[in-house]
Design a protein around this nucleic acid. Sequence first.
DNA 1: CATCAACATTTGATCGATCAAATCCAATCA
DNA 2: TGATTGGATTTGATCGATCAAATGTTGATG
Lengths: 335, 335
Amino acid sequence: MAERATLSSVAERAGTSRQTVSNVLNAPERVRPETRDRVRAAIEATGYRPHVAARQLRTRRSMNVGLRLMPLQDGINGSILDAFVHALTENAAHAGYRLVLFSAPDDDGEIAAYDELLETADLDAFVLTSTHHGDRRTRWLLDHGVAFATFGRPWSAGTDPRDSVHHWVDVDGRLGAAAATRHLRDLGHERIGFLGWPAGSGAGDERRAGWRDVLGAAAVLDEAVTDGVRQGSDAAARLLAAGATALVCASDSLALGAFHRTTAVVGFDDTPVAAAVGLSSVAQPVEAAAAHVVAMLARALGDPVPPVLPSTPDRHVLLEPRLVVRDEPVSLAHP
Amino acid sequence: MAERATLSSVAERAGTSRQTVSNVLNAPERVRPETRDRVRAAIEATGYRPHVAARQLRTRRSMNVGLRLMPLQDGINGSILDAFVHALTENAAHAGYRLVLFSAPDDDGEIAAYDELLETADLDAFVLTSTHHGDRRTRWLLDHGVAFATFGRPWSAGTDPRDSVHHWVDVDGRLGAAAATRHLRDLGHERIGFLGWPAGSGAGDERRAGWRDVLGAAAVLDEAVTDGVRQGSDAAARLLAAGATALVCASDSLALGAFHRTTAVVGFDDTPVAAAVGLSSVAQPVEAAAAHVVAMLARALGDPVPPVLPSTPDRHVLLEPRLVVRDEPVSLAHP
DNA sequence: CATCAACATTTGATCGATCAAATCCAATCA
DNA sequence: TGATTGGATTTGATCGATCAAATGTTGATG
């Protein structure tokens, strides 16, 4: 087994010094072209790869980004986050970052984990998901000058202006719900109900607002229940009894419950279940969201943003969801 | 902002040397109790935490475990892997490991990533999922003396004995299918069909075998289709037409398709969908699987195995799945 | 031809831990 | 008393990179 190549071993081979090799990698413009080529050849020949721990010890940069895995969602809806984690992993790799996972029982535990990881492992940044009212995590990170971005808007009532200064990416659920409503109207439905959650959840309220945007004064058939298939089924029955002929739902769980009462249903998040049963649903562009998150972090960290990532310098990005229309229900098509 | 505490700063405060502080942390028995207490007090007072990069540079151990995120499953079934990732993250933390994610387009890409991560980041071990026939990854890792464990048996036809020497954890699908079949028989069904995949997939064949184990010569109603809700629905119709009154399915996707034809269905993997619609399903003990994986890695690495992890010294663990019986179908209960 | 600036390259120190070997110290024994 | 032993503690070197400052080289300029 060959010895591990180091800066020094490469330097020796190229007939230069450590630092020149280092410069070829980190500041090539400082090195004369001929030397550069000679060093590059030596790097190639030895298969040299920089050792991250050594670099980290000196620079205090680990190129690692932390992500807390949220406790598993009980239902169907958790899968967007999983898709997001996938997309994040790939996009982080494009920018040279690696994703480090950790878990915590609650927000305070997550904050304690930040503290620990920053001090012991030099994590460069964090990605937060599932932002909510009164989120202490963002405050802590801002106060400590840590780079981070959230997937999800800051949902606070705007009391503290600092909440809006951090980087975030979110999907415009209002637009999505509006598109869903319009789609059903285009199919000929006139009495379109909304099946969502009780007021108070940021995302839920947004979606309801999108439905109202389209229907205006006709937006009267409104049910608010906790998330779940059974609740969706029951509430759908009530809405249909009240005269609704089509339903916009705040989640695929609710939509799945509603789906066997009528196929004129649109769900939210385009989970695997929706695809499986042929349910139309509003898809979140998680891939794009992840790309924006990584781009924001790279900018915040002063690192180059690779061309594959979005180059908008915005600190906030609100993405447009996409309505996935499926016109052939699969599993519930009783003969 | 206080300066970062280091071994030296703690040592100074405690009136000892660096090395003694290091010993208190890594080999306390070498230090006289009084000194030990003094040092511990200094550690406490300064909030000292060891810097992983510095340690890693010297010891060549990162305490990081790599995991490749598989490309997203198209359907419902991917969620077991996600649950496994969660469980793995938590159990890894118990043993002092962190989980580092990476992605790769295929097995060869994964191997290239191993190579890279080992050399640059000193990853201590890897966890592999979705093992399959002719898996080159395990061979490579064995050849390079890298610690790893797989979630999933080596499914090779036993040509190379090395395949069986590595650490693996799996769930006994055969047992699970048998339990499902028995459950349906106990409910009074006599003609129980199996709805699975074409022969050739390790896990699928196991599950079919479990069904045969229970029914013996009565195991005749057998359909093999590719995975999917629609396929499940269609195949279920054929099986029912052929006289079946109940169905054991190889996946929740298939089971969901079958579910509206008859509620006498048992699925596999107990995905969120199954819970959502009230479908009985065979649950994989992912939590236990993850704990075993971490315990195996810790042993392989010569690290202490924390008491919360299983202490069996086995290199192979076959876990028993659990049948989750749900007797009230939710969404498909047509009035 | 000497001087100076600008560029190119090298040298020594450093990040914070561990390893290996040296030193210190108290207790034991000839 | 002095040598010996074993445990406790300290010292110096090291891992592999980067930083900061010093040195070396080149070309332009008066």
